[in-house]
Computed example of a mutant assay.
Amino acid sequence: MEATRTQQTVSPQIKISDSEWEVMRVLWTLGSADAQEITSLLGERMDWKLATVKTLLGRLVKKAAVTTETAGKKFRYFPAVSEEETIQSATENLFSHVCAKKMGATIADLIAESTLTQADLELIKEALAAKVPVAKIACNCIPGQCECSEHQKTTK
């Protein structure tokens, strides 16, 4: 029987849940897998059953993060987005929720909390050396959302 593969249009901003991330990590590592393979890899650590993995795969297909290939009754799943694209999307999503004036502190916290190799530190140093600073950053929060002086009410 000939295999058929379904493809969907990939969304530029794919938001996936923590559980979906775990499934995607398996697919990015293996290149493709069926639900049973994913369950055997994640089942014990995540305490997931086959039905849970199939539900997560269905959501990922709907989000166009995963494509499927069928051969008879068996489905094989393939990542439709790269790990790099998904990390970029998640990073953009995270930073869209952070006050622009707190971006530097947030990045510093991420670095402080991360386990990094010397190569990672060199990469960060290179990125910082290439970065051109701006004189001032305008707050992008709604009034009352942050404590910056731009949003402080003045009473006379």
Rank of each mutant, 00 (worst) to 15 (best):
T67W: 00
K73C: 02
T106G: 04
A80N: 00
K62L: 10
S89W: 11
E113W: 11
K54F: 03
A71W: 07
I111H: 07
A80W: 00
K54H: 06
Y77R: 06
F95S: 05
A51S: 05
D109V: 15
T70R: 14
E113G: 07
E83H: 05
I111G: 04
C99M: 03
G58K: 13
A90C: 05
L56K: 10
T91V: 14
K74E: 14
L94I: 08
V66I: 06
T115D: 10
L50W: 08
A80C: 04
G104M: 11
I107C: 13
D109N: 15
E85Y: 05
V61E: 02
E85K: 06
A71M: 10
I107M: 14
K73Y: 09
A71D: 11
G104D: 13
G104K: 15
T67Y: 01
N93P: 02
E113L: 12
T55I: 06
S96T: 09
S114N: 09
T70P: 00
G58V: 04
T106K: 09
V53F: 04
A51F: 03
V61G: 01
R76Q: 08
K101F: 09
A105Q: 15
G58D: 08
R59L: 05
K73H: 09
E84N: 04
T67S: 14
T115R: 11
K63A: 11
A100T: 14
T68Q: 08
K102M: 13
G58R: 12
A71T: 13
K102C: 15
